[in-house]
């Protein structure tokens, strides 16, 4: 994320995303890894789906988000 923020012309552009059904915005050029950090979910047992495709944990850093992406972030909860 720091990389992105140092470039003024880039940081002014904003990505509009839908994350777990809510509208969110992030600086253009953000990756899945940036999103996970921005949401304070680092190191948690989560899974991320981008436009119905799973993003493997190893690819969070290399997966750049695009305007209009629909993201689902899920975790284990109690259930029967």
């Amino acid at each position: 994320m720091t990389n992105v923020r140092t470039h003024k012309e880039v940081s002014e552009a904003v990505l509009q995303l839908t994350v777990n059904g809510e509208d969110r915005s992030l600086p253009a050029g953000s990756s899945v890894s940036d999103l996970v950090s921005a949401l304070d979910l680092d190191g948690r047992k989560i899974a991320v789906e981008r436009n119905l495709e799973i993003v493997p944990r190893s690819q969070y850093g290399g997966t750049e988000l695009e305007n209009g992406d629909r993201i689902e972030i899920v975790a284990f909860v109690g259930g029967g």
Binding site: N20, E72, I73, V74, A75, F76, V77
Partner: peptide, 17 residues
């Protein structure tokens, strides 16, 4: 266990794990 959306508005919510 079930799989559900992470609560983004309350990241401090107790977690099963």
């Amino acid at each position: 266990v079930a799989i559900r959306r992470v609560n983004l508005s309350n990241p401090d919510e107790p977690r099963l794990v």
